[in-house]
Write a protein that binds this DNA or RNA. Sequence first.
DNA 1: CTGTTAGCGCGTTCAT
DNA 2: ATGAACGCGCTAACAG
Lengths: 362, 362
Amino acid sequence: MNRKRVTLAQVAAEAGVAASTASLVLAGRGSELRLSQALQERVRAAAERLGYRPNAVSVGLRTGSTRTLAFISDSVASSRLAGEMIKGAIDAARARGFLVFVGETGGDVQLERQLLNAMFDRQVDGLVLASMITHRRALPPEATRTPAVLLNLEVDGATDVPRVLPDEYAAGREAVGHLLERGLRDIHLIGAGPTEDDAPPFSLGAQQRLHGILDALRDAGLEPASGSPVIQWLPPEGFRLTSQLLDGGVVPQALICFNDRLAMGAYQALGERGLAVPDDVSVVSFDDVSFAQWLRPGLTTFALPHRAMGKRAVELLIDRVEAAKDDTGAGDAAVAPSLLPMPLRVRASVREVDAAAAVPRV
Amino acid sequence: MNRKRVTLAQVAAEAGVAASTASLVLAGRGSELRLSQALQERVRAAAERLGYRPNAVSVGLRTGSTRTLAFISDSVASSRLAGEMIKGAIDAARARGFLVFVGETGGDVQLERQLLNAMFDRQVDGLVLASMITHRRALPPEATRTPAVLLNLEVDGATDVPRVLPDEYAAGREAVGHLLERGLRDIHLIGAGPTEDDAPPFSLGAQQRLHGILDALRDAGLEPASGSPVIQWLPPEGFRLTSQLLDGGVVPQALICFNDRLAMGAYQALGERGLAVPDDVSVVSFDDVSFAQWLRPGLTTFALPHRAMGKRAVELLIDRVEAAKDDTGAGDAAVAPSLLPMPLRVRASVREVDAAAAVPRV
DNA sequence: CTGTTAGCGCGTTCAT
DNA sequence: ATGAACGCGCTAACAG
């Protein structure tokens, strides 16, 4: 029941020409080759009438290009953000006429190889290798012999493979800037800090957030009022850390939570003690997960631009794929990572004080 | 740099046999056709040595089967649950040697057709058409001429295309059962009700949840203490609805929230009035979104089995694909939908009373 | 037991 | 201006 497809041969027969002729006019090269308008119209009409669509498998075999991409990540299901990354990728691909195979490894190297093989067997034109948590890894050898781009991933040493990453460092700086501008100087860190070394070792993003925060503070002649590193960034930890801080008798002016889940826990701890956000304590955070906007009050947070990252990654990839076609032989020069801005979602968790008290922007 | 692939011809040459012979032994039909063991070994060794992998595009063209599936949904990014559905699907596919093209329409019919075409052009063996919100829709004509299964979607009339859906009705029944067993009889509905007609018209799932709840209540000789239909099931609505209830002077014994977002809003409203969950009011809900476990206390909720649904859908699909190969001609009999159970995640939002006060299970 | 032949559907010379 | 012929890489008839 599947083989109802119309072939080029049928179109040619219908139009009374040879298959090759039909191929030419449908490829738009008819006028270039000075085929009569009448004939061209005849072919086009026949194709239209029959509902002809080229068999992409055949074209792929013939031309070596399948207009198909591989998207392999360690996790597609962990959060909405993962979905956003994929959506950005498949949308951008479709916009340029590509389809994408998506695979998930769960971090299993074995499985990754298996998927890579299965996709390359199907002659994908390029590969985006993605991760849901920004970290550093080695490239699989397959990624070398075909156009590839890394998404939310960094590699060691100089490399010619493009990477796209969120600009965590800048977001860290902006987070303290946002607080300082509003006169908040008693800033406590929840999830990492107080020193450069106090960040989860596996998360590049965490390290850069911290780095940005500390640098911005230092530039203002300040340092964190406290810091509390922790390995898991989940609400219970946020709750515990914030509770400890509060139990120590301090009421912080502002909290920088290293992600929204920690912030959710912080809200809970604050709420249990009758402390109001933002009147008693201000909170800024990172990620902009779904519930950030539903917390009361709405959480001010820096969004991980996952959609944009997915989009950028496949755009870079397709650029490479199409460049590789007209093989210039170049393209193996080291390339810097593309850093995408993390937009600030201003909501209601940071206190708005009068301008007089605020430190002017530097 | 991409064309380093070893072909069957090279393997055959290396082994000193004809290509067709090599093909046969690598397909495992060597012994069946009584080829000498020595020859078979030679071929296998050559393939191994050269790192041969069949070009799946060529195989696809030749055999008509690409071992590739189409997964098209209206949204992949809306929630973690969407990701789970996809993960279930791609995992099940991989386990059976299939890869999947993922596409998203955003509900745009135009785009859906475009994606369908692009995927069928690439000769996918089957289609899963999915939605993130359970509803009823018409089948695109393409879904008729190839194996297809509907995921979280229902169609009008009898049909031979399999559908997989969560068992919302059963979950609705169980929700009231869970409350009744614990002696809770003053049950208020947040998001729908109090009558059968008070449910969002576009959501089949909502209607069935409500139906199950009402039936179970009726079986126990009860009816909802109140109901409050609303179109958007988001935290602000949950907050508003619950606040209204409370402002009316009633302190409900138990709330059935129609989803976790509404429940989050209910928690907030309760919290603002100093009412404790579950000591003052119990809450059950549906979906089991990510934050349900992070609410304090943890939210007892019926999980949408998205992962399992994705898995089941592709398993049914692949069964059909492989059945269609050895064309029995059958398969066009009407088929009932596969209803997957929504497991109850018992957490801490329902009060545990002493058995004496509880209504025994029927 | 093995190799030859044919063709899946298409794009691309190369002679007309 | 047009069509015949070839081949992408593979599988499956059929001969030998």
